[in-house]
Design a protein around this nucleic acid. Structure first.
Lengths: 202, 202
DNA sequence: CTACATATTCTAGCATTGCTAGGTTTTTCC
DNA sequence: GGAAAAACCTAGCAATGCTAGAATATGTAG
């Protein structure tokens, strides 16, 4: 009997704890969302801790109960980016003829970078604490990269190396376009030549 | 006679003016040099206006008589980078057999990026005010790029597009290596595959 | 040589930033 | 109801880029 009461109490406390955890998670997402939105509209320089605390209507220390530092918030946005890039590439790869998979993936990659410049920027600008190969590297990063590797499996050249090169080319194009080194007008032709390069390669 | 005296005076004033201009230029170069050195040793975050003013033993406002802002100093360093990259690529291209020009240039590019990471970073991280094609773009930038275009002249595909792609690939490799996305160990093999890609291309 | 004018440099401070210590309020639980 | 714990806020620190205004050095003319 005593145990039963204790159980109910426990469950009640659990419900409250769960609700709190939900609320906390929701608030965390609001922070990340606000950071991403502001960055996309006004650039990362406008994403200040004060601005974010205004946006979510909490004081600054609350942000630091969710993240270690401002950079921690940027890292969270970057992770969100990889969490979206991976599936986008996978969808492009698997839907359609196998022969044109490279073309579709390249197109999807550049479209992603172009449609969310600030997001793409933070995904690669941010200093990685650990090397990419390290076990501590978030699964989202490795997962996104693995979609590229799958494109080149079963060839002569090592798939990882070719995939890295493919990634580097796409990243180079994305970066040089974002920072206005490349005129956006020729993007289609650039894509055409790039695809030709990596399709012929055996 | 009066004119003669005036002339002597003029010339004396000229000498003084020239000396002042020389001193000013020397001081400007010390600022840029200090910025580059600090960045290469401690990262760009350590390149503060106060730190630079300490380094050259002048007060902060003096820096602002040479540059509009802190970013102006970074831009000067970036320009210095392009002023070195261009000749480095040209030297690699012209010295040696024509058949291996692509390989040499690619190697020189990656070596440049690897040996001065902070310099390379500021050359591309910095927001360009005007698009690359614009007439206001410094000649150093266009000159460096033209070395890449020369590699692909007289082919089927448009040389500019291929050169852009070549540049993008190199930049991608450099960036992803610098930010630890790529393990440096496989750099040789990456270079090998890259060269194979762009050599076969007609 | 002196006194003025101009150019050069410095002192001191402002506003904004990331971040945090300490106190205050709210919530939870018996 | 009242203590313990959790959640939150106020207020402030140190560092940053940048600048107004005072102070000093430098060149010029009488």
């Amino acid at each position: 009997m005593l145990e039963y009461v204790a159980m109910v109490r426990e469950e009640a406390g659990d419900r409250i704890a769960r609700r709190k955890a939900r609320d906390r998670e929701a608030r965390r997402e609001r922070i990340v969302g606000a950071a991403r939105r502001i960055a996309e509209h006004e650039g990362w320089a406008s994403v200040t801790v004060r601005r974010l605390s205004d946006e979510i209507a909490y004081s600054q220390p609350v942000l630091y109960s969710h993240f270690e530092s401002r950079e921690g918030i940027l890292a969270a946005v970057a992770l969100e980016g990889f969490r979206e890039l991976g599936p986008a590439l996978e969808k492009a790869r698997s839907s359609g003829s196998r022969g044109k998979a490279i073309e579709r993936v390249a197109g999807a990659y550049l479209k992603f970078a172009e449609s969310s410049p600030a997001l793409y920027e933070v995904m690669f600008t941010l200093g990685l604490t650990v090397p990419f190969g390290d076990a501590a590297t978030p699964v989202e990063l490795r997962s996104a990269f693995s979609k590229l590797v799958q494109l080149f499996e079963g060839r002569k050249a090592k798939p990882e190396i070719v995939a890295e090169l493919f990634w580097a080319s796409l990243h180079g194009i994305a970066e040089l376009t974002r920072t206005r080194r490349f005129p956006p007008a020729w993007q289609k032709e650039r894509l055409r030549v790039l695809v030709a390069l990596f399709t012929r390669l055996q």
